[in-house]
Structure formats: C-alpha cells, structure tokens
Design a protein around this nucleic acid. Structure first.
Lengths: 332, 332
DNA sequence: TTGTACGCGTTATCAA
DNA sequence: TTGATAACGCGTACAA
C-alpha cells in the first residue's frame, strides 16, 4: 500500500505539501495541487485514516448502546443516529448489549481506550446506574427518564401515559389493566406514575391485581393478557407500555374469543411501523424517533468538542394517536 | 491522559516491559508483572487502542452494509453479526445505505482507508453491481442470490419460492397473484423464478397481470393488494416476496371485506417476529437469520486473515412454515 | 528476563 | 508557498 511519502516522491514535492493538498488545499499553489492529484491517481494512494486518527487522538466514531436492535423503535432511532453521524463525519459502532451489563462495560471500555469518542445510550437509565460511566466520558442518554443523570433526551413518559389513560377513562372505562415493562425499568416507573395519576384524578382506586409485569416483548404481552383473561372481573381496557406487548396481548385476546375493541380496548406506546398495520390498528403514543436520534448526535458531538450543554435535558413532544383498538366501554 | 511511558516510570521498568505485560504476560517475571499492574491502577492507565491499531495496521472493525436497518429481518441478521463479531474481537460499523449508492461508496471507502478491515453486505448483489467493490477488499455478501459474485451466504430462494407456490397449488389454488419486490432486485428475480417453475410444473400458464411490483415495504404491499382487489377475476391466493408486504396486503384485503384465509390465502417470506403474531399468523419461509450472521462473520474474519475460502458460496437451509394465512381454495 | 531504539503514516511547527 | 523534522503511543527487533 502506498503512503504519503510515495505520493510526495512521485509528485516531486514534500510530504508536508501532500498533506496540505488534502486537508487544506487553499494553502497550496495550483501547480503543486495538480502535481499531487496526478501522483495520487498514479500510485493509487488512499490516506491511512488509522494514522490520521492516531495523530489527532480522535477515532471519529461513536458507540450506540442498545438493549435490542430488533426492537423497531430502537432501530428507528438508530437509523436516524447513523444518518446524522455520517453527516457529521462520525461512524456508528453498534453495541447490542442484550441487557447484559458486562457487554455494556466492554463498549464503555471501547471509548475509554479511544476506539470511540463518545457514547449514546438507548436504554432508560436511572441515576443509580449512572455510576458505571466515568464522568469525563462524553455520553448522552437518548431514552431518558425523569431520573436520568447527565445529558439526556426523552419524552414526557408520565404525561403521555396519563393522556392515554385519561382517554380510556373518557371512553367510560373504569377497570383498566396495565401490561408493564419490567417494574424496575425506569420507563415502566414513569409510565406507571402517569397511569396512577390519571386514575387518581378520576377517583378510581388503584388495584394491584390489574398490573401485569411484562418485559417489552410480544411474547410477554401474550402471557400477561392471559392473566387478565382468567380474572372473574375482567378489565375492559388494557394499557400496554409498548406496542409490541399490545400486539401480543391482542393476539391472546382474539384467541380467547374476545373482540378488540368491542369487548376490550387495548393501547400501545411508541408507534412502531406495525402499529398502523396490525389488526386492529393500535391507538398509541408516537415517539419522535427521528428527532431523538438526530438530537442525540448533535448533543454528543458538542460534548466531544468539549462544549458544555446549556440544555442538558431535552424533553421532546410525543403525539397521542387514536386508531381502532379503542372504543367506548360497553354499558354494563 | 496517561500513556505507557507514565506507567513504566511509575513501575520503575521500561516501556517494553509494560507493553509485554499487557500483550504477552508470560514473558514477564511475576515481580515485574505485579509492579506494572500496580502502576497501571495508580496512574489510571488505559492503553490507546488507536495507537495499537495504527501499529498493527488493523482497525478490528467491520462494516455492515444494510439497505434498511428498520427491516426486522435485517436487524435480526445484524444482531447475530454483532454478537459474533464481538466474540472475535471485532467492532461493527453500521452502514445504513437507504438504498443510496453514494452512501454505499462512502462505506467502501472506509475500508479502503483502513477504518475497517472488511465488509459484510446485507443486500442482494448481482454480479454486475460487484464491480464497485475492489477485488482485494475482504467482503462477504450475507444475502446473496444465484448471481452473486464472490463469497456469499444465501438460502435457495428459488427452491423456497417453489415450495411455497407448490403448497398453494396443492390447496387447489390455480390463480395465484404475486407481490414482488422491485423487479430488478436479485431476490425478486430468484423468487419469481421459483414461482414460474412451480406454475409450469402444474401446467398453469403464467399471467403477467397477476404480478404486482412492490418494494418490500408494508406500504407497497398495501397498494399492490388493492390492484388485485380491483380485478374482475381475483386471484384466490397471493404469494408475497416478504412478510412486510404480506402484512400490508392482508390489511388491504380485510379493509375490502375479504377474509384471510377463507376468501383468499396470503403467504410471506422471511419469518420476521411479527409473522407469528399478526392476524392471521403468516404462512411463510423462515430464513436462518442467526446462522447467516454468524457464518458471515466467520467467513469474513478468515478472509481478513488472508485465507482463501474453500467454500465461498454457502447455501443455508430455509424452513417452510405453515400457519393460518392459507387455506384450501373455495370450490367455485 | 529486561532495556534501548527505531519505525509505523500522518500532521504541525518552524524556518526558509 | 514550501520543506525538513519532530512529535503522537505503541510494538518489537536486537542487544544486554
């Protein structure tokens, strides 16, 4: 492989001139520029970015830590991150942690050892977990919760959940089941708070047996719904903490001979692409995945550049979308 | 940031000893090893991988080129790639091309400039397109077709499609519509060949008007199905070239008041997670996403190591899965 | 077993 | 505008 010296020799100039021709062409005479370009073409030179990065002590890469890339909401955010990062000259290192803390650590180590300049987390992160990340490490949480420490982007999960449950109550539902994510998951906590607030505002007592704990997978939605089907006094609506669990739940309900939404309403959260196409279309909360990803990159790049963020916690608007999976409670 | 020299000074040994202590501990006396470890802890040393990679002229990163990471089939493969790559000490650079050739080129350049050691393509690639990739570049196509040049992994798309259409014919269907991907897409070509083979074997003439061209998105499935609904003589079954288009098509059919599968059968391809949970569950072809990803990494790593593959074209088995979206043709 | 010294490809500094 | 040369942090002959 040819290096910058080969080009310099071929062009009859110094290596410094070649280097300048590439990174600051305006500082080189037209004649020299021309010679350099010809020489580059002739010897088939490609700058060694490894050396360039080494020299500049920057890798121009960012790690994206994601619990599960197969989750369509996350992959939507990642897509936006990749797009923006590419624009800004950064590569995206994919860190699919599968929820394993040791893998997370491996990736954090990658930025400590300079293989990446910063880190975007796509996992809700409460302040307690934050200790793992060294304070001087450039890092942004793109799926924050109310308790997230450090720079973060999030929606108002509590408010959105309240809006959703308020809506169900306005449809006449009083007995509203919840399919939650893991109960110690910060998103679950925020959304549960919204659920409780809504009930309280309507004067409906909170009942523990109406809460089923899932883990944000379709499979868990399937099982949790089964739990409700077995109850003597079934809920007339189910508030699911994400779309995948809602889709799984609907599957179970149908299998049990229940009609959605005529017999029971179901709501989701995230507005993944399937929410619009499943049967019935899901009433859900739309998260601005594209904006989240874009903003995360912008914030991180500033952090990498040594800036301090004037607005370290960004709360983006979410959208309440009514589709076909919800209906008036049957007057019983 | 402390470097290897700081550690050496602190430990009272030479930099060479520190270097050895990290990469070849067996060549260092226990005493020296101990001193080095203490010094590392004391000064908070982290080896600079940028420098290490530069020295070794390896980036220990691979680029994964994917047309659309939000497609669940692709994200499944990527997940497996990431897992295997991590095991083998490689990082995954995400290259979401969104079908734009210039972005693809940017990523190919990344490996030419040493920022990555090799390339995995998740796009069907016919031999014509192969020219773009320099022949000396380590590259594996993980979504190959019959026409793919160079190392590749694929399933027998033609055979799988034939199996599926054979099945529909065995159910009594004679008028079978196709929702294809873009017609110049190599996967579309292979799967269409299987469709035609099956018809021919059954003595059913091929009819051009039974083919609708989509682009592998749900949205296109939606529209293509509409096309069939408007026909005077509707097909009794639709063979979709992926699950997403099948899900979109089913949505349209239901909206038109048709029952699936009682009035019309629909089949998919890929077996994405939703195929099992949509209504009705999809009869489809399961691609071994995990094995594909794993094998792709293994092959690429060998290629990077300078080996020549004894088996450059791997054809993995696919699985035919019957669910609820297909039924006997109504005796008309 | 340990240490010295050089080279990897690039950019930045400085002098011409 | 150009060129010579010193870094950058690490690995590794080679010598001790």
């Amino acid at each position: 492989m040819s290096n910058i010296r080969d080009v310099a020799r071929e062009a009859g100039v110094s290596v410094a001139t070649v280097s300048r021709a590439l990174s600051a062409p305006e500082k080189v005479s037209t004649k020299a520029l021309d010679k350099v370009h010809k020489a580059i073409a002739k010897v088939g030179y490609r700058p060694n970015m490894l050396a360039r990065n080494f020299r500049s002590t920057r890798s121009y890469a960012i790690v994206v830590l994601v619990p599960d890339i197969a989750n369509p909401f996350y992959s939507g955010v990642i897509s936006a991150i990749e797009d923006r990062a590419q624009q800004k000259g950064y590569a995206v290192l994919l860190g699919d942690t599968r929820g394993m803390p040791e893998r997370e650590l491996e990736y954090i180590r990658r930025v400590e050892t300079r293989l990446a300049d910063g880190l975007i987390q796509l996992r809700p992160h409460s302040s307690k977990m934050h200790d793992v990340i060294p304070p001087d490490l450039a890092s942004v949480n793109a799926c924050g919760c109310e308790d997230t420490a450090g720079p973060s982007i999030r929606i108002d999960n509590r408010g959105a959940a309240k809006t959703m449950v308020d809506y169900l109550i306005s449809l006449g539902h009083r007995r509203i089941g919840v399919i939650s994510g893991l109960t110690d998951n910060p998103h679950s906590i925020d959304r549960m708070a919204g659920y409780k607030e809504s009930l309280e505002a309507a004067g409906i007592p909170f009942e523990k047996e109406l809460v089923a704990e899932g883990d944000f997978t379709m499979w868990s939605g399937l099982n949790c719904a089964l739990q409700f089907c077995g109850m003597k006094e079934r809920p007339t609506a189910i508030f699911c903490m994400n779309d995948e669990m809602a889709i799984g739940a609907i599957q179970t309900l149908k299998a049990q001979g229940l009609r959605v939404p005529e017999d029971i309403s179901v709501t989701g959260f995230d507005d993944i692409p399937y929410a619009k196409y499943c049967d019935p279309n899901l009433t859900t909360i739309s998260q601005p995945a594209g904006d989240i990803g874009k903003l995360a990159v912008d914030m991180l790049v500033r952090l990498i550049g040594g800036e301090t963020l004037n607005q370290p916690e960004c709360i983006l608007p979410s959208e309440f979308i009514v589709r076909k999976s919800t209906a008036r409670a049957r007057s019983s």
